[in-house]
Design a protein around this nucleic acid. Sequence first.
DNA 1: AATTGGTTCTGAACCGTTACGGTCAGATCA
DNA 2: TGATCTGACCGTAACGGTTCAGAACCAATT
Lengths: 366, 366
Amino acid sequence: MARSIHVRRPATLASLAAELGVSRTTVSNAYNRPDQLSPELRRRVLETARRLGYPGPDPVARSLRTRKAGAVGLLLTENLSYAFRDPAALGFLEGLALACEGAGQGLHLVPVNPEREDVAAVHRAGVDGFVVYSVPDDDPHLAAVLSRPVPTVVADQPNVEGVDQVGIDDHAAITALAQQLITLGHRRIGVLCMRLSRDRNDGFASPERQRSAHFHVQRARLAGLAEAFGAVGVDWSGVRVVERFDHTTASGASAAAQLLDADPQVTALICTSDILALGALTEARRRGLRVPQDLTVTGFDGIADADRVGLTTVRQPVLEKGRAAGKLLLGAPDPTRPREVILDTELVPGSTAAPPRTSEERWFGP
Amino acid sequence: MARSIHVRRPATLASLAAELGVSRTTVSNAYNRPDQLSPELRRRVLETARRLGYPGPDPVARSLRTRKAGAVGLLLTENLSYAFRDPAALGFLEGLALACEGAGQGLHLVPVNPEREDVAAVHRAGVDGFVVYSVPDDDPHLAAVLSRPVPTVVADQPNVEGVDQVGIDDHAAITALAQQLITLGHRRIGVLCMRLSRDRNDGFASPERQRSAHFHVQRARLAGLAEAFGAVGVDWSGVRVVERFDHTTASGASAAAQLLDADPQVTALICTSDILALGALTEARRRGLRVPQDLTVTGFDGIADADRVGLTTVRQPVLEKGRAAGKLLLGAPDPTRPREVILDTELVPGSTAAPPRTSEERWFGP
DNA sequence: AATTGGTTCTGAACCGTTACGGTCAGATCA
DNA sequence: TGATCTGACCGTAACGGTTCAGAACCAATT
């Protein structure tokens, strides 16, 4: 099967029509509305098309005319390839892909460089709508998406007025987790969180920085923790929160190290993601700290690896979230009000949380 | 930040030009070639655009004129969502995404339904080229891709004359693995392989079916095994090959069960993928067979989970493969001849292969 | 004074298709 | 026999841009 490489498109609908001595409309109909012409003529059109090497109507021209691209754009602030490495993002993507293929829509991954503020790729994407996955509220790419006259659904964050949304109740979810730890008796805690803003800050996050975080999800989780622990008398300004820009287990490990160095007395490390928590577990093991006897570690998301190691965490239905986002975008838009889908979360007890040891136990063993 | 939902695009380049009293060319230049007009006028154009809610040049119209879509199409025969579940496909995707974002190109996942032969999605995709990942040689979607006047790169399979290609030397790779097993002393083996054709055949694959497989990769691996074991006197027609349509660990487990039921005497299960091998390990454990003492199991691919359990396998650079495919597609095309990239593989010894036990050992212990 | 060169802007052609509203011949009907 | 319907096809006008060859203008050079 030989084929010429990248030949200039040889035939168009018009040239085909000329060759056949019929109108362009008729050729178009041969492809799109077979009932509009006689079977015999249609056969001739298709036959001539084959002979001339006409590959069928040009998709771009068709899109221009019909105002339909047949694809959904996906925007995420990380590198494109990040989506294929992060388990939660992956689950979301799978759900979204499910919804798209169910509707016969393509999935157009928009390449954005998180470092540069180059918004051109958003403007170049020929899509019928956008799904925006977990970006900061001041993301210029998001602004570019919103400026385009196509429907948009935001997943997780940020909250944008008038835009359809799918996510979870972060505040409630983290509150349940916090209650669990409080019940176990933890009062001296440390927190590991993901990036709070577009600027890199690998280190402690001040309460001010926590409050002004541009990532709504992180902000809500931290606020929920502050509230829950504040209610039992913990002074939040004394609680160390370590932030990491990169979302990897290595980041989690180094963040845990930083926190444990600063305050060896903490009895629990609360992590705002499983990935960070897995890293924290590694660091704990490296230090000879037994989990959960010497240290409690919790995560968030409920990824497969968390399940494997029995991490105490909050499970959120990431695949369902992706699917819901797709359905929201592809379903009939509701002009009266933006729609919001809040999915359920579930506290996963796991085996990495236990009551804190007393000081004596810490020094002299159980 | 309020926004109107799905308003009919209010302004076009033309209406903006009319409003400003300049030509369309000038407005176009304001966006694409700032050096072609005075800074002052450009400022006015952009300002008016904002006022009128003009979101910038329409991407589809621009694509039509410039003959550039700014995106690469990806075709894979499985459901779209499969790509996000299979580790090898995922690695490929990540590499491809890396190449795409490096070139500022989007990645357009084409939704194909493997059950139905609906090729429309391929024709509807507005892309500048296609990457085809591991499809059967008689795939109608592949034919549709090749009929389109855009460059194409095929990864893994099939071999198409005149089309750029990236892959590995399956024959050499499997031969190395086979030699290893032969050296260990295995002669009575069983094989677990992935689907050989578009029709579902969950069961034994006859030598005829093996030879006529539409998946080139599987065909080459089976042929390599037949050759290597044939050279040491093993009659291939007596070797059981179990085929599975779905590529999951559950399939691997059931295939292993089917094979071990049919011939409990086999000393080694050679699997053409790690996923199948992981399933086989599960089944072996279920039967109380120790690996590798009682049964040798090997895989192919070198995925992370294989590494984790110490599977004896062949590692192939999946990420690199994706990246190479992207580079091939996006780099300057070579009109003189199709290019071919063959990546290196590496035998991973692992700990799931050992010499077979003698019959006595099998029955009476070591 | 004529030429040259540069900047800034314009007019018209073109990209390849589909939507819309026809026309027209022949069949059907009262 | 004339009116109406139907199936098959067509002409025109978008769809929303980009591009290229100039025009108009002004300043600097010869």
